[in-house]
Amino acid sequence: MSSSPALLRFLSHALLDDKQRQHCSNLTYTDAGHGFDVFGLSPDWVQGMFALFQPLYQHYFRVESHGIEHIPKTGAAILAANHSGMLPIDGTMIYCDVLHNTHPARIPRPVTDHFVPSLPLISTLYARCGTVGGSRGNVQALLSRGELLLIFPEGVPGISKPFRERYQLRPFRVGVIEMAVRHRVPIIPVAVIGAEEQFPLRTQVPLKLFGAPFLPISPIPVPLPVRYHIHYGAPIPVYEGTSEADADNPQITKAGAARVQQAVQALIEEGLRTRKGIFQ
């Protein structure tokens, strides 16, 4: 998959208005020399994919953003969100939302599960848009570069939970806290409302293709046009009162994970209480 600049330019011109193009034209990234950062992110691809997903973001899921001001304009931070909906559409909508609503536009760097880099085409597409594999080394490298990370601390159990258990968080993994404490970065809790209902009927085939834990199946071929509400909470300085060495302390990381999970759960409950309906 080469950079295909002509196709990306076409997408941008066809699907973005002048204001949106201007907004995305000055994306900041660390160029490693050929228009890509070391992880393979390309601003052309970010803009092209943003253009491609813009109709979904604006017109299909009609995303409503709440509390975007909690995302710092610069410097490292971690967005910790609930994960749901069988397919990672929630991650895509957060990605679009952050790009759309931050000024200057910040590129969130989603952190995926280990199997994603093994997926043909998807791995490359994700990398061009800024996604990285979920290894400690990658996360450390990004945080030390002052990037904004998007992590789903529930992992695969979050996205694969049955419909009847919607909006019930799976236990948060402690790795995100370890990184936040070690690098002294705040965690911004994020709640995604709507994604749980996009595939009400779903099942999983235990077929491990390219290392993926299961093959998601739904009788509904496309997600329902639910309205997404994305709520960003106030940054949680989980590193306060700790030293960098405490990143290895299981008690501190467990307590931090519970604190962040509580904050996300509170945002979810607030979001569910204030929304008027699944499609509104």
Partner: peptide
């Protein structure tokens, strides 16, 4: 490998 970091320091 897929599971390894993409940035390799000397301890990789």
């Amino acid at each position: 490998r897929a599971v390894e970091p993409e940035i390799l320091d000397e301890r990789h």
